[in-house]
């Protein structure tokens, strides 16, 4: 099944364009980070010091996750547009098989994102870092990258659900961006009390890669209302399962 998906992906130029764009934008942003100025002081290469580098990279990478979501939407809506989901069912795949294949693609995209973050971490941390890392510092906060992986898997689940729901790439991408950037934030700020809004999907996913220095901010201005990553983790996994489960129910109960 994975081999069949690779046969579709590897010759597809759109896939490569978006993956390269993701890597270039992310690495470019991280590279430019050292010239940022905070409180009149240039960040410099201290930004790349282990072990804080990993949560910083995970936080920055999460801004580019939407690109991977857009790619997954394109890959799923293509199957509707080309009527190839329909043809695969005719040829002997079940609806469950179709979604398992796309879930495998989403796992592949997560692995790509993680590899880019790891490669960037190794390069910036070991080569551009201000000083040689202390023993054990390189791997100390590596779990932040694993949380980034779970977060990406969650966003891709949401993207898949919207793609299966809308079936057209333009509309699904628009809905995806509107939901993440506009609809859910508005809902949280205007309607929902703090107790509930911290459990909304993108809020939970966002909590997996907290803003670097969040602990300091919390001590200065009080708690942010976000869940801790360890609290957000099981809920994020549950949301991911719900997104794929709903996608399956939609696909199974509608005509292809």
């Amino acid at each position: 099944m994975l081999r069949t998906e690779l046969r579709k992906l590897l010759p597809y130029r759109t896939v490569w364009v978006i993956l390269v764009l993701f890597a270039v934008l992310f690495v470019g942003f991280v590279s430019a980070g050292s010239s940022f100025t905070v409180n009149g002081q240039r960040m410099g290469d201290t930004l790349y010091a282990f072990p804080e580098l990993w949560p910083r990279l995970a936080y920055v990478a999460h801004y580019f996750t939407l690109l991977l979501g857009i790619l997954l939407i394109i890959l799923i809506t293509d199957e509707f547009q080309f009527r190839t989901f329909r043809q695969q069912v005719i040829d002997g795949r079940s609806v469950g098989d179709l979604l398992v294949a796309k879930f495998a693609v989403s796992v592949g995209l997560v692995l790509f994102g993680v590899l880019v973050v790891l490669a960037a971490g190794v390069y910036f941390g070991l080569i551009r870092g201000a000083q040689a890392p202390a023993s054990g510092a390189v791997t100390a906060q590596l779990p932040a990258v694993a949380l980034y992986a779970v977060q990406t898997l969650g966003y891709l689940g949401l993207a898949a659900l919207l793609a299966v729901l809308v079936r057209r790439s333009g509309a699904a991408i628009l809905l995806f961006l509107l939901y993440v950037w506009v609809a859910e934030p508005l809902l949280r700020y205007l309607l929902l009390p703090d107790v509930i809004d911290q459990y909304m999907p993108t809020k939970v996913l966002g909590a997996l890669t907290p803003t670097p220095g969040q602990e300091m901010l919390t001590s200065m201005v009080g708690a942010s209302g976000d869940l801790l990553p360890s609290q957000a983790l099981p809920i994020a996994l549950a949301y991911t399962a719900v997104f794929w489960g709903l996608s399956y129910l939609l696909l199974r109960n509608r005509d292809l």
């Binding site: 081999r3 069949t4 046969r7 579709k8 010759p11 597809y12 130029r13 293509d78 080309f82 009527r83 190839t84 329909r86 043809q87 695969q88 005719i90 040829d91 002997g92 795949r93």
Partner: peptide
């Protein structure tokens, strides 16, 4: 089966499309 219209990935070659169909079957 051929139902209604021929359904293929337009960016793939004839052979690559048949390869995918062979995988599914």
């Amino acid at each position: 089966a051929l139902l209604e219209t021929p359904n293929f990935y337009p960016y793939l070659s004839a052979r690559q499309n048949l390869q995918i169909a062979a995988d599914v079957k």
